[in-house]
Computed example of a mutant assay.
Amino acid sequence: MTTLILIPARMASTRLPGKPLADIAGLPMIVHVAARAAESGLGRVVVATDTEAVAQAVRANGFEAVMTRVDHQSGSDRIFEALSALDPEARVETVINVQGDLPTVEPATIAAALAPLADPAVDIGTLGVEISREEERTNPNVVKVVGSPLSRGRLRALYFTRATAPWGEGPHYHHIGLYAYRRSALARFVALPPSPLEQRERLEQLRALEAGMRIDVELVASVPLGVDTPEDLERAREILSRKA
């Protein structure tokens, strides 16, 4: 499959304004994410942004950027615009959406999201990690995936929720919002209106499930650090300074 990795990046973060350009070990955060994506070896890597300063920083460090509209409601909408601009002849078969605030993500973790698409019945691949810390089970900021086991390392997603689910004895899984789409699935997804459960839970991926699309979840060992707060940024700086 021909794969394009797209990294949506916008400057309008409420908790950490301007975070794509936040300095980490001498480079903007968005450049670290692009480098990790390139190291996966899966295909072309492009940052999709609505801010010229982000595009300039990405290009100055040897990576590709494409400008997108400022009024997108989600990263999925932004990457679909980018895909349409970058590949108007529809040669790309799969698109990986890597969040622009994952500067320490492992290349193997990015590749894991693509694995479920080896099954032609799967529309979207994503990632999960078994929860080990009790407080995460009840934290509404930790999105859980409820799924039917397909193998030791994979689930078929039945629901995503901020609640503690499923009930009873057994594991719970932390969802990682990194997605691999078949091109046709991404086009279908962005054409759908927001769904009732999506709006209630504030989880975009429920739109796909409510429309009957299939999402499979590859289980990985750990949750990559997402930078949402100044404290997260300092942690990322510590981690990547050690690697520099």
Results as ranks from 00 to 15, higher is better:
residue 154 R to S: 07
residue 160 F to C: 03
residue 231 E to T: 13
residue 39 E to V: 12
residue 144 K to R: 15
residue 93 E to V: 02
residue 36 R to Y: 05
residue 163 A to N: 07
residue 204 E to D: 12
residue 227 V to A: 03
residue 67 M to H: 08
residue 33 V to Y: 01
residue 15 R to W: 07
residue 173 Y to I: 06
residue 219 L to S: 01
residue 178 L to G: 03
residue 23 D to H: 09
residue 45 V to T: 15
residue 154 R to E: 06
residue 31 V to C: 09
residue 148 S to H: 14
residue 22 A to D: 08
residue 229 T to Y: 06
residue 20 P to K: 06
residue 23 D to N: 14
residue 85 A to K: 15
residue 93 E to S: 12
residue 156 R to P: 01
residue 205 Q to S: 14
residue 239 I to R: 03
residue 241 S to P: 02
residue 242 R to I: 11
residue 149 P to N: 08
residue 148 S to E: 15
residue 116 P to Q: 07
residue 24 I to S: 00
residue 11 M to C: 08
residue 37 A to L: 03
residue 27 L to I: 08
residue 38 A to E: 14
residue 173 Y to Q: 03
residue 216 D to E: 13
residue 96 I to L: 11
residue 160 F to W: 07
residue 158 L to K: 14
residue 219 L to M: 05
residue 197 L to N: 07
residue 127 L to V: 10
residue 222 S to R: 15
residue 243 K to D: 09
residue 229 T to L: 11
residue 83 L to N: 00
residue 235 R to F: 04
residue 19 K to R: 13
residue 194 P to M: 07
residue 5 I to K: 01
residue 87 D to G: 05
residue 11 M to I: 08
residue 143 V to Q: 00
residue 36 R to P: 02
residue 196 P to W: 11
residue 220 V to H: 04
residue 110 I to G: 00
residue 50 D to I: 03
residue 158 L to W: 11
residue 126 T to D: 08
residue 228 D to Q: 09
residue 39 E to C: 15
residue 217 V to Y: 03
residue 93 E to D: 09
residue 72 H to Y: 14
residue 27 L to F: 07
residue 1 M to L: 12
residue 20 P to A: 09
residue 91 R to L: 11
residue 178 L to R: 01
residue 123 D to E: 14
residue 84 S to L: 15
residue 93 E to C: 05
residue 60 A to E: 13
residue 192 L to H: 15
residue 202 R to F: 11
residue 90 A to Y: 11
residue 158 L to N: 11
residue 194 P to Q: 09
residue 127 L to P: 01
residue 1 M to Q: 14
residue 127 L to T: 04
residue 76 S to N: 13
residue 199 Q to C: 15
residue 132 S to W: 09
residue 73 Q to W: 14
residue 190 V to Y: 09
residue 101 D to W: 07
residue 169 E to M: 13
residue 237 R to K: 11
residue 151 S to Y: 04
residue 37 A to R: 00
residue 203 L to E: 08
residue 83 L to R: 00
residue 27 L to P: 02
residue 167 W to I: 15
residue 17 P to G: 07
residue 12 A to S: 15
residue 106 E to D: 12
residue 9 A to W: 02
residue 223 V to S: 12
residue 3 T to N: 03
residue 128 G to C: 05
residue 152 R to E: 14
residue 113 A to R: 05
residue 186 L to G: 02
residue 200 R to C: 11
residue 9 A to R: 00
residue 170 G to W: 06
residue 197 L to S: 08
residue 96 I to M: 05
residue 189 F to H: 05
residue 64 E to I: 02
residue 100 G to Y: 04
residue 178 L to S: 02
residue 104 T to M: 08
residue 229 T to R: 08
residue 79 I to F: 02
residue 24 I to V: 10
residue 156 R to E: 13
residue 146 V to G: 04
residue 70 V to K: 13
residue 56 Q to M: 12
residue 24 I to E: 01
residue 242 R to L: 14
